[in-house]
């Protein structure tokens, strides 16, 4: 069996006395799209922050392609692309200037890669030349995806990637994610859009109050249920009645 692209082992994150992520373990394989679900405040973004080396885990181990990731061990993150929340950009730089700057981090990437990736995410060249402060939310999201894909990462981490996209944009994103996964890229997708996740992802994990309550292939979790929404609500309801919030 091939090496997992992402592995979390017993990861914990405390903020003072509040436990935001509680003993989360999961694995994402090459070519797999893993849906990371949970209500607001469940700990999804905190988990993603740790995966990206931005937050210090309180305990546990995170590995990307077998190499540890912490804020002090970040070399493995060169194989990771991320689009998290509202993508962060310098308002005075154009979309193209951002991609040009980011490209310099990867000496092997030719300048033509910027055009390729802009086309891949559907951001027109004229728009790419404008300062980011003039972009709509959807355009920022496309630029964020372009930045995430620029260096052909082996793991793509996405947190609500369809924010601000119209239905056509969402369908394009869905098709692109499937295409990337088929090409061998591992995708770690956090989203509230359960219908989208059901269509795109191979496996899902449901996080509630910092704990991973259910993990498995979408088909297995769906057995006897109508859709992923029902799975989600059943899981959350079961966890809610089983363990009062600390």
């Amino acid at each position: 069996m091939s090496q997992p692209v992402l592995r979390l082992e017993h990861v914990v994150k405390d903020y003072g006395s509040v436990r935001a992520v509680d003993d989360v373990s999961l694995t994402v394989w090459p070519g797999e799209c893993f849906g990371f679900l949970g209500p607001n405040g469940a700990g999804k973004t905190t988990t993603i922050g740790m995966v990206l080396g931005l937050l210090h885990p309180t305990a546990g181990r995170i590995e990307v392609l077998g190499r540890p990731v912490t804020p002090r061990h970040t070399a493995a993150l060169r194989e990771v692309g991320a689009l998290v929340g509202a993508p962060a950009f310098y308002p005075y730089l154009s979309g193209r200037a951002h991609l040009d700057l980011l490209r310099r981090l990867y000496p092997d990437l030719p300048p033509s890669r910027v055009d390729e990736v802009l086309e891949q995410v559907g951001l027109p060249p004229q728009a790419a030349r404008r300062p980011v402060k003039t972009y709509s939310t959807g355009m920022r999201q496309r630029l964020g995806l372009a930045a995430a894909l620029l260096h052909r990462p082996r793991l793509l981490v996405l947190d609500e990637p369809t924010n601000g996209l119209d239905p056509i944009g969402m369908a394009e994103m869905r098709a692109l994610l499937r295409q990337l996964a088929e090409g061998g890229m591992a995708i770690f997708l956090s989203s509230h859009l359960l219908h989208e996740v059901q269509q795109v992802c191979d496996r899902v994990g449901i996080l509630y109050r910092g704990r991973l309550q259910a993990v498995g292939p979408v088909d297995e979790l769906l057995q006897g249920r109508r859709d992923l929404e029902e799975v989600f609500f059943d899981t959350v309801a079961a966890a809610s009645s089983a363990r009062p919030r600390a």
Partner: peptide, 9 residues
């Protein structure tokens, strides 16, 4: 934008 760079290794 700090994270834009740190999350890339």
């Amino acid at each position: 934008t700090v994270g834009l760079w740190l999350s890339r290794g």
